[in-house]
């Protein structure tokens, strides 16, 4: 049983995520799971009614999910964005910067190592959907 690490205040969404094809076929689902090669932009018309989007990482080195997450957040999605699959502690900070706020790793993550990894960098060099002010903005504040 995969334990889900959530960084959101709201209650976990109960409905299981359906595949992208199934989601596009049925009109009332509120949770969807997209695979690495699938186009996150297909979800844009439905973002208002989605409460959970799960993005799968088949291997941690497959970085397509980072762009998928950024696109969804740039389009205004505010529901739970969950990274699932081969999600490792050393990628969590970048995943979070791209808008993920929940993780369903295949292998359990040591909470202490996770806390360190997420808090380590005080500043960032570039803007992303996490709204942290990049260093250039701090310099010219």
């Amino acid at each position: 049983m995969v334990e889900v690490i959530r960084m959101r205040e709201d209650e976990p969404h109960e409905e299981p995520a359906v595949s992208l094809d199934a989601f596009l076929d049925q009109t009332n689902a509120t949770a969807v799971r997209i695979e690495a090669g699938e186009d996150a932009r297909q979800l844009i018309p439905f973002l208002d009614r989605l409460a959970l989007i799960e993005v799968d990482f088949p291997v941690f080195g497959d970085g397509r999910g980072y762009s998928a997450a950024q696109i969804l957040r740039e389009e205004g999605y505010t529901g739970e964005l969950r990274a699932s699959g081969d999600v490792l502690v050393d990628q969590l900070a970048y995943l979070k910067r791209c808008g993920f706020d929940a993780f369903a790793p295949d292998a359990p993550i040591n909470p202490q190592v996770m806390a360190q990894a997420l808090d380590r960098y005080e500043d960032v060099y570039q803007g992303t959907t996490d709204s942290r002010a990049p260093i250039w903005k701090l310099r010219h504040a």
């Binding site: 941690f60 497959d62 970085g63 980072y66 762009s67 910067r97 570039q126 992303t128």
Partner: peptide
């Protein structure tokens, strides 16, 4: 250089 350093979206490129 600064923009690309620790870029979260582009650190696991093909």
């Amino acid at each position: 250089r600064q923009w690309s350093s620790f870029h979260p979206e582009f650190s696991y490129l093909p």
